[in-house]
């Protein structure tokens, strides 16, 4: 029997709507589980603060071990900014303001965003894999049977460590980037060294530039750590499940970071 085009369309349409409804439902239940997980994680904060050792160990593996990648990337991004900034600014004879341009780009945008993206790739994926494997090897279940709450003992310290490390890593990234810009700008291209620093000092605002940048990186740290830990905790406990969860961490973190950056920028710098 030949299907009339409109019946066919109707059938496709129903299928599409069904699929859409199902996907929406799965996404929302996951969001619900994720929010509940976040509440549980946050409720463990006090018990972690009583035992700072747990937090310090995680600050080391989440934060300190990301130092190298953040430093090197910051240096290169700063050097490229120095080059590109110089080419554009020198057309207008404004190469003296190179320091402002480099510092503003880094502190407002590139520092928080790029370091958060690197953090998601370096530390976030490792967190997801670690938690997912702990789940797959029954370590979390085992802990629960030993009357130890795995969320408070394992998840909360990692969450706090990620959340506190992120602004520090972003600050490091920006600071190294500013030095990279100076190395290229005044070391290589002959911008006046004094002008590079004094213009920067005169034109950067603490509240508008630095504080807003710090707020951004706190938000990114919060979201990235949440995504990474939840994906691990929610992973299907098989090797394939953990590997997929790790991928989702990196992809979802990147989307969230870039999306939130846009929203935050609109609110922070919108009325300038």
């Amino acid at each position: 029997m030949r299907l009339l085009p409109c019946t066919l369309n109707l059938k496709l349409m129903t299928e599409f709507l069904q699929q859409l409804g199902q996907n929406t439902r799965t996404s929302f239940t996951k969001l619900g589980r994720g929010s509940f997980f976040l509440l549980q994680t946050l409720s463990g904060t006090l018990s972690v603060l009583i035992r700072p050792r747990l937090l310090l160990n995680q600050m080391y593996s989440v934060g300190v071990l990301s130092f190298l990648i953040i430093t090197i990337s910051g240096l290169f991004v700063g050097m490229v900014l120095g080059l590109q900034g110089y080419y554009v600014l020198s057309d207008f004879g404004a190469e003296e303001t190179l320091g402002v341009m480099v510092a503003a780009s880094l502190v407002r945008e590139l520092g928080p965003v790029v370091s958060a993206l690197l953090f998601a790739g370096r530390a976030g994926s490792a967190l997801t894999a670690e938690i997912g494997l702990m789940k797959a090897t029954e370590q979390l279940s085992g802990m629960e049977m030993m009357a130890v709450d795995p969320i408070k003992r394992i998840i909360t310290p990692r969450f706090l460590a990620g959340f506190l490390s992120m602004p520090l890593l972003a600050a490091l990234f920006s600071a190294i980037g500013v030095i990279g810009g100076q190395m290229v700008g005044s070391g290589l291209l002959g911008v006046d060294d004094g002008a590079y620093w004094s213009q920067m000092q005169a034109n950067m605002d603490f509240r508008d530039d630095i504080l807003n940048g710090v707020i951004k990186s706190i938000v990114f740290g919060f979201v990235t750590s949440w995504i990474a830990l939840f994906e691990g905790y929610d992973a299907i406990p098989t090797s394939e499940g953990v590997s997929r969860a790790t991928t989702r961490t990196v992809v979802n973190s990147a989307f969230s970071i870039l999306g939130l950056d846009f929203i935050l920028t609109v609110f922070m710098f919108g009325d300038n």
Partner: peptide, 11 residues
Amino acid sequence: GMLFQSGALLT
């Protein structure tokens, strides 16, 4: 006490 099949030691 519970002894898991895999041991479930903290790695």
